[in-house]
């Protein structure tokens, strides 16, 4: 394992979730599941974050915010869509103000299903995301050597 996937920091943004997934993201970090013991910390600054946890679907108003946070994150970065709404739009998929899943706005690497997504599913998805982070980090290093 390289340095990037040891203790990734996460950033969380609520696109248009009902809070159910948001509090489960926080619950995964808190004592019940306690991923903080592995050094996974929730940060408020996109420039410090390696993994972007998005909950909820995107709409016209927040699509720019999601893209802005994604653009401010430094490479390598991984996006995890947490919950059914973030994956596809969920129960709100046919609502007039919902554009669809987060993949309408930014490239998503891992999809975590569930309504609300369970902390176990988030942890699984983040572990899955670490492998992607590792790949991206290696590709970035190769690119730098080649240049």
């Amino acid at each position: 394992m390289g340095f990037a996937s040891k203790s990734p920091w996460v950033i969380h943004y609520d696109a248009s979730s009902c809070n159910g997934c948001d509090i489960e993201v926080l619950a995964a970090l808190c004592p019940g599941y306690d991923v903080e013991r592995f050094g996974i910390i929730n940060t408020g600054n996109p420039k410090h974050a390696d993994i972007f946890l998005v909950t909820g679907s995107v709409n016209e108003q927040n699509i720019r915010v999601v893209q802005e946070i994604y653009n401010q994150m430094l490479e390598p970065k991984v996006v995890v869509a947490c919950g059914c709404c973030a994956c596809t739009g969920g129960v709100f998929h046919d609502s007039y103000n919902v554009l669809g899943g987060v993949d309408q706005a930014i490239p998503v690497d891992v999809y975590a299903p569930g309504c609300a997504v369970r902390p176990e599913a988030i942890i699984d998805a983040v572990v899955e995301g670490l492998a992607v982070l590792e790949q991206k980090s290696e590709a970035l290093q190769q690119q730098r050597k080649g240049a």
């Binding site: 696109a15 909820g56 709409n59 108003q61 927040n62 709100f92 103000n97 919902v98």
Partner: peptide, 22 residues
């Protein structure tokens, strides 16, 4: 206005038993 989903409108497309889950 960042998380408006239009739930009140959805009562017209889902019957009262379906809408309870929404």
């Amino acid at each position: 206005g960042f998380i408006h989903r239009g739930l009140e409108r959805m009562t017209q497309t889902h019957d009262y038993n379906q809408f309870i889950y929404i």
